[in-house]
Design a protein around this nucleic acid. Sequence first.
DNA 1: TTGAAAGCGGTACCAA
DNA 2: TTGGTACCGCTTTCAA
Lengths: 345, 345
Amino acid sequence: MSTINDVARAAGVSVATVSRALRGLDRVSPQTRARVVQAATELHYVASPTASSLASGRTKVVAVVVPFLARWFFATVISGIEKALRRHDHHVLLIDLEGESFGTRLHLSHSMLWKRVDGVIVLATALDEQEQALIERLGLPVVTIGHRIRDWSCVRIDDKEAMRIAVRHVLDLGHTDVAYVGGVPDASADLQTPQDRARAFADTLAERGLGCPPEWVIESDWTAVGAARDIMAVLNGPSRPTAVVAASDEMALGVMAAARRSGLAVPQDLSVIGVDDHVLSEALGLTTVRQDVLCQGHRAGEALMRQLVDEAAATVDEVMPVQLVVRESTAPPPKTRGGTRVTNT
Amino acid sequence: MSTINDVARAAGVSVATVSRALRGLDRVSPQTRARVVQAATELHYVASPTASSLASGRTKVVAVVVPFLARWFFATVISGIEKALRRHDHHVLLIDLEGESFGTRLHLSHSMLWKRVDGVIVLATALDEQEQALIERLGLPVVTIGHRIRDWSCVRIDDKEAMRIAVRHVLDLGHTDVAYVGGVPDASADLQTPQDRARAFADTLAERGLGCPPEWVIESDWTAVGAARDIMAVLNGPSRPTAVVAASDEMALGVMAAARRSGLAVPQDLSVIGVDDHVLSEALGLTTVRQDVLCQGHRAGEALMRQLVDEAAATVDEVMPVQLVVRESTAPPPKTRGGTRVTNT
DNA sequence: TTGAAAGCGGTACCAA
DNA sequence: TTGGTACCGCTTTCAA
């Protein structure tokens, strides 16, 4: 593979000129540029990214930090980020903080970022003081998604608003006995999304003079299996809700499945609503509050690029809209309070 | 931030010695190494990856090429890869080939890889001749996942075997009228997984002297919504199958939902089985043939690292086991052929 | 065991 | 508009 020297020789100019010509800088005559470009093309020249990084101090790589990757939300956001960055000729370096064993999380370290990336995008993760200080010290521009940290740029939805919409939907249908899945587990005590959604659930009920017994507010690991397992006791309890609001679609789908297993028809006996609009929600007929996840990734990518180009670019706090999508999992409560228990297995 | 020079000065040795000491090479006296390590620690020294890459020619970065990211299978594989690589102090550079508009795909290019990565992992993508030649020319070690290319290393499952297991399961339950979702669409004509699974479906039926009318073999875009849409005609047709085999769990979940919409109970009126064991399959009670996706990522990462360390390392073709997981979506066919149409909406 | 010095392949400043 | 050249920070012979 050829180097800048080969191109310079072939074009009969200096390496400095080749560098300028190829990067589209001015102060290069059209003729010269043409000669250089042609020589470069013929030699299949591609500048070594490591060499230019070393010389220029910019890597054209952005670290995307995720708590874990194999979740629809994260994968989708990253996809959006990737597409935004590639427009600006930048790349995604993945930093998955999920530890080897469940529940553990790696610490963001100096060596993961130092001289390796030009900026950082943090997905729905609460960084501790040390990690925040690290990024600050490294002088890296940051954009967070779904979770505000310091005064860094952030792209997100209004979680409270989203939950309010979900709760109001079931209340408007006439439900008064509403359970909640997605209470804040210890592991997420520092995350805004679980907190905000749980809080908004309670507040919105209160707003209408309703309440929810504590045993109907269920903590969850935010997975479908977990939610299905945990909601069972409530569904089979002596008195049960006529609607369940889940803090995410994945949990909502778990609840739907659990309901069917308990012989409850959705939405006749039990209404279920989620938040997110997961890929599978449409097919499975789940009513939900949609957020455009791909777009959030896009926006975050663009925001970071702006900060990269212009040191002084203002940090942003973009709040993306959400929208109720009514499908087949919600309906007015059954006439007979508590619903009719049917057996279909 | 300090450089190797600062450390050398602080430790009172040359930069060469610092380099050796810190990388754990031999020919450094224990005392010297200790002094260097201490100096480095005190200065919070971390070697510049770009500088060492330029000097050594190795980047410690691996390109992971995916057709698109926001799909459970891909995200999960990548998660496995990431964990394997990070053990060896290597990183994942994401290369998402999904184009801006649906159905288009970016071309893997020189500039994406050249001097940027030490190796490549290709996920379930058929690279064209040019792309293959490019990788070969660059001399990069490769591991593919789920799709064999040339004689490159590959980690995969036996797709035919997986499908055979799925089909046999429904046949063993007594079904004879079986439809298939996941016929090979044009866009995937060059992918082995859709082909192999479709082929094995037909072969396994034939093996038992059974057949499947062409209108029961449904092409699909491999999404849940798509499958739900496309299966409708079959479910509402004059004669309908008692079981549907889907080439993936995502499609199978779509079929389950479509069945319910058509007033068919699963599994009483219709059995549904998929392949993959998607995260949501357990919660939703889908019978499936499980593959361990995370592990495949892991293995691929390890295989690549081996080839990276040892140029002469043998290429591998690891075929991972699959396993039938019977849940609640399959049962013997209804007594009355064609099933009883019930209305529950 | 240690050090000196020549790269690695560009970028960017200063002269010309 | 161009060229010369000093770095960028580390690795890696080759000598000492």
